[in-house]
Write a protein that binds this DNA or RNA. Structure first.
Lengths: 148, 148
DNA sequence: TTTATTGCAAAATGTTTGCATAGCC
DNA sequence: GGCTATGCAAACATTTTGCAATAAA
């Protein structure tokens, strides 16, 4: 099965090749699933979604592929106090807002300037590869539309 | 067995009473263990530590008590990409630096002013009860002393 | 052809639950 | 004394692993 040629998956082939990894249909379908519905799904939710077009895929492969995508810097992992790891293909600097009521997660833009300010909090000798910012709280009913 | 009357555990009794919860020796010993060695232990590590002075305690009780302490706002939960939840009795506004090499976690002070700046990133309708900031990276050998 | 990746099943890990007993208020 | 919290064991949820078969390069 060849690539279904969406927009971004070209980047996937490039990144995989760059790391000496193979471009498999499983990796493609999983990456496209993440790009298609950016609601921070769990591995199991990704599994459900990709099985629609690839019924033979296994859950272990979903875990493996997600791990691969994370290592290729195409996907970020997101962890909350409770529950399984979630996956996010938004590579722009951003924070996450976790609505305790609905369980939904929203991306919150963070200007590079603020990111830099935060990074400067680190004392000498500390080198951060990534910075994770998570808000926990509730949101007004009205704001519940723009879920990404 | 009465309270071993350390310094902080007085706060524990107060917070528990305020929530209509009971002050048990298990809750005290666990809270004191967290205050005593602030290296962000897992539930299992807390279990090991408190069993020294209370061999009869069960792991389930450790989980229950930690949950109670979190609900009383005496302890924060910390989650990383991988591995079990960790617990932190530092209530001052701070971030966490997670050293991928050693697995150690260090507290990083965050001035209230910066915390406020971050909170202002939220659009209208979002109300954050807490903000979690985690750095992932490595640190120079020299800086490895001041582990809290 | 070579070697990474997949799918399956089983194991490991981390956490929660049900219930009888103990003990705080 | 009433009712919450404990201890135990079993259940549960999530993730990882071992290995033979498959398929990408």
């Amino acid at each position: 099965m060849r690539s279904s040629s969406s927009d971004h998956p070209a980047k996937l082939a490039e990144r995989l090749a760059h790391s000496g990894l193979r471009n498999t249909p499983q990796r493609e379908v999983i990456y496209r699933a993440l790009l298609g519905k950016r609601d921070h799904p769990t591995a199991d939710e990704v599994y459900s979604r990709v099985r629609v077009e690839m019924p033979s895929i296994s859950l272990a492969t979903v875990y493996n592929c997600l791990e691969t995508l994370v290592q290729c810097d195409l996907v970020r992992q997101v962890n909350f106090e409770r529950g399984p790891t979630r996956y996010c293909p938004n590579l722009h600097p951003h924070a996450h807002f976790h609505d305790e009521q609905s369980g939904a997660t929203h991306d919150i833009d963070v200007p590079a300037e603020i990111m830099e300010r935060i990074r400067e909090l680190l004392p000498a000798g500390y080198a951060a590869k990534s910075i994770e910012i998570t808000f926990h709280g509730r949101m007004a009913e009205a704001a519940n539309e723009q879920a990404r």
